[in-house]
């Protein structure tokens, strides 16, 4: 099981890193731009008259602040998920060791001493 999970993680890392190693496709305005921004560019290119009728109430004042908030979002998500999995892992291990007769014998020895 552990091996399967490590293989899964390794595959994820390879798929994510491969584009950085492979040669970039030609004709890119900017390497690794966001697809969302590209769609926006496509809209403005095909519809030069379109005026966005609403602007964000607040924008991160710099790329640094933006990356701070993205990192915060990822950290909150990963933190909670890690807490949950760690909690359940601890519970399942405690249950296993409670049910383990060798452990019970050891406890009995402890009790006699």
């Amino acid at each position: 099981m552990k091996r399967t999970n490590l293989l899964l993680l390794a595959a994820v890392v390879v798929i994510a890193a491969l584009p950085l190693i492979l040669p970039l496709p030609g004709g890119l305005a900017e390497p690794f731009a966001g697809a969302d921004a590209q769609a926006q560019t496509a809209i403005t290119a095909a519809n030069p008259d379109y005026q966005p009728w609403f602007t964000p109430l607040w924008e991160p004042p710099s790329g640094e602040i933006e990356s701070l908030l993205f990192a915060l979002q990822a950290a909150l998500g990963a933190g909670l998920l890690g807490y949950y999995l760690g909690l359940r892992r601890g519970e399942s291990q405690r249950r296993k060791s409670d049910a383990d007769p060798a452990r019970l014998d050891a406890q009995a020895v402890d009790a006699r001493d």
């Binding site: 950085l20 690794f32 909150l76 990963a78 933190g79």
Partner: peptide, 17 residues
């Protein structure tokens, strides 16, 4: 939380975006 973390991760793709 899984959706929170995954949608924060911008990952490069073979198309160069």
């Amino acid at each position: 939380a899984f959706a929170f973390v995954l949608s924060a991760l911008k990952i490069p793709s073979v198309t160069g975006s």
